[in-house]
Design a protein around this nucleic acid. Structure first.
Lengths: 261, 261
DNA sequence: CGGGTTGTTGATGAGGGTCAAACACGGTGG
DNA sequence: CCACCGTGTTTGACCCTCATCAACAACCCG
């Protein structure tokens, strides 16, 4: 598992909210300037199945990029499903609501990841996607994407794979919620984040959590207090160092041990 | 919500294991005699997007039907992904395993439902599918299905929808596992089963559980004792009558109340 | 610099897990 | 036919993890 060569600067050093947004700075504020060919994420995104020379096709597919400030919603439960979204910068959470009002976060989504797949079936969103910080999302009208799939079998297959991956991911989370202790859940969560940051070219050992303890707790089926206490315990045991949202994993082996993988 | 006209006899009266297998009796034991046009389930199955006169296409698509006796596995974790399965008779559970050996059931699958969607991404099954009782599953080679999708946009769209539906389902279960009490989980579970039986033309009020308390517990993130106790409590409160695996929901309203939907 | 949000830590208790005993039911074989 | 066994279920007693309530500290931003 080699450190990505793309890691020019320590993620640790990034001020909050800048860890990813430097990418978007480069493409400026315009909503129209969507250009997959030059996108920093094209290798980890939906577009990565298309050979570079055909990336122009995506520039037509992706009509625009939406900018959302922290707390703004990409879509709400009940909204008509019209498009999928690829996180371009920042990050999102998807939130499910039980009719009684209790909320639970069902996923965190980093750049390059696809959001909104659950709504294809009923043509309505049943969850809500909220920006964890100032973020950008590329809008992919689903009808157009499906049509493009007609011409590009590779793209179609990739879509199937991404849907399938979401199912696997959710089933993993179900396992976590069903059988793991608080320690195991948190260790698993941190290691998962670590892998995803690494995939994006950041340090897998040091990163900035872009969600609150409460949000982590909601995702893991724990209270914020338990999250905080468990983090403290991990720190006491030397597995990691945590200061606010800055995390340094000092002993990934031990974390894997406690995570049970 | 009208009772289905297909309900000729009370599900209650069926001896165990016969609730669904009468269907398969009719098609005999042969592995080759797969014929969607005459299938009892064609209206609730993948095939339902294709007009009746084109159902013949499916008879070529679905190469065979596998017969499995109780406890037999349809596929194992690690198996190469080659086909999806539609439950034809009986029922299946999908089981996930944490490396440490702890198991958790991630889903129960009744006739007409699709199994194996999680494996498209990695081309390997990461879970295991086991027959809950003597069962049959139609085998749909995925490569062929994808190819057929090229010609039938309706079919392709339906596939996307089914994948998406699985995601929704899993996210619902995550909510359940993350925030619900034991009572809420069990009530939700029973109501969900009820709906699915109704969809198949059986009574939504009286049915036979085809899984053990332990399996229910595993699915809901509870122990078998808690499942048993909670069922007893529901019975004491008059919400249902339970004798072994025979369940009669006597007060669906109250159950919905406690389920919180 | 102050008020709001977020995070830490402690004390207490409840929901549900664990362990244990006994029962119900469906075979199986004498 | 009944004794026997194994699996599945019920119920009780006890205990542990994590939720709840509460106070306080740290940080952030205008």
């Amino acid at each position: 598992m080699s450190m990505s060569a793309a890691l020019h600067q320590p993620a640790w050093a990034f001020p909050r909210n800048d860890a990813f947004s430097f990418v978007s700075r480069a493409v400026a504020q315009s909503r129209a300037a969507v250009n997959c060919s030059g996108c920093y994420h094209r290798k980890v995104c939906l577009a990565n199945v298309v050979p570079d020379r055909e990336l122009g096709m995506f520039d037509e597919l992706i009509s625009m990029r939406r900018k959302l400030s922290r707390g703004a919603t990409l879509y709400r439960a009940g909204d008509r499903f019209e498009a999928l979204y690829v996180v371009h910068s920042g990050g999102f959470k998807t939130v499910g609501r039980l009719t009684h009002g209790e909320e639970k976060i069902t996923g965190f989504h980093l750049p390059g990841e696809l959001v909104g797949l659950d709504a294809i079936d009923s043509a309505k969103h049943s969850y809500e996607a909220v920006a964890l910080e100032d973020s950008e999302a590329c809008v992919i009208p689903f009808a157009r994407l499906e049509a493009a799939g007609q011409k590009f079998p590779e793209l179609r297959h990739q879509l199937f794979r991404l849907l399938s991956r979401d199912i696997s991911r959710d089933q993993g989370l179900m396992l976590l919620l069903g059988v793991m202790t608080a320690e195991q859940r948190l260790a698993t969560f941190l290691l998962n984040l670590s892998r995803r940051y690494q995939r994006l070219g950041f340090s897998p050992e040091r990163f900035v959590l872009r969600m609150t303890r409460e949000e982590i707790g909601s995702y893991l089926g724990l209270t914020l207090e338990t999250v905080s206490r468990t983090l403290s315990r991990f720190q006491r045991e030397g597995h990691l160092a945590v200061r606010q949202r800055d995390i340094e994993l000092k002993n990934m082996g031990a974390l894997m041990e406690t995570a049970g993988c």
